[in-house]
Simulated scan of single mutants.
Amino acid sequence: MGMLHYYNYPETEIFGFDEFLICQIRECAEIQPEHNNKLNEVIQKHFSGKNMVYISNRVNSYSLNPLTYVHTEKIPNLLASAMIPETKFMKKKKKNAKFERDFFDKPYEIFDNLNKAIEWAHTIVKNSN
């Protein structure tokens, strides 16, 4: 399960693997629905014709417009999203992630660590085939 691609944008880093990508949004970034254009480009380039899962590794503090999810769920080969709130501020970030779940109409789970999110991602992709 080696990393296949690395994408470095001003507001985020994206690590692409076989069945999922891990996104780490940078400190103080402001994520709006139009950021989905970049995400969709990466997904269509990296996962062309393949189902995949989005994993958000929330290690930084940033703002996110929850309406972003309304557009994210329209990405055709995106099956699900996993959130890993950073442990130092987990209580508040977990609350935010639960609120954001209401805007995403595909499987959306919150995990305490990256390993569990990756295991879940593999299961989601496997069950979709």
Rank of each mutant, 00 (worst) to 15 (best):
L64M: 14
K126H: 01
I14S: 00
W120A: 02
L4M: 11
N37L: 11
E100F: 00
F103P: 05
K92W: 10
G16T: 09
M90S: 15
F111Y: 07
E119R: 06
I25T: 15
A97I: 06
K88F: 13
I43Y: 04
I110V: 01
T12I: 13
A117G: 13
R58F: 03
H5C: 04
I55Q: 02
E11P: 02
F89R: 07
P107L: 00
I118V: 15
G16W: 00
H5Q: 13
E27P: 08
N37Y: 08
K88Y: 09
V42G: 00
E13V: 09
R101I: 11
P33H: 07
Y7H: 06
L4N: 14
K50W: 01
Y54C: 10
K92D: 13
L67G: 12
A121L: 00
S61T: 15
K38H: 02
M1F: 10
H122E: 15
F111H: 11
Y69E: 11
T12S: 11
I43C: 12
A121W: 01
N36M: 08
I110F: 02
K95C: 05
M83I: 08
N60E: 15
N127K: 12
Y54W: 08
F47R: 05
N115H: 09
N57Q: 06
E13R: 04
V70Y: 07
E19I: 09
S63L: 12
N96I: 10
K93Q: 12
D18V: 06
E109M: 14
V125M: 03
K106C: 07
K38N: 06
A80E: 02
N37T: 12
F99V: 11
E27D: 10
N40Q: 12
I43E: 07
N36Q: 01
Y62L: 03
H71P: 03
N129K: 13
H71S: 14
A97V: 09
K94L: 12
L79C: 11
S61L: 13
A121R: 02
Y7G: 00
Y7W: 06
M52D: 01
N36C: 15
N40F: 06
E100C: 01
E19V: 11
V125F: 02
C28P: 01
E119V: 08
T12W: 06
L78R: 00
L67R: 06
K94M: 07
R58L: 05
P66Y: 11
I75V: 05
N40E: 15
Y6K: 05
P85I: 00
Y62F: 15
T68P: 08
N113P: 09
I43A: 05
P107T: 00
I43W: 01
I118D: 02
I124L: 07
N57I: 01
E100S: 01
D102H: 12
M1R: 00
I14P: 00
N127V: 03
N96S: 12
I84Y: 05
F111N: 12
F20N: 03
N115W: 03
M83W: 05
K94T: 04
A80M: 06
I118Q: 02
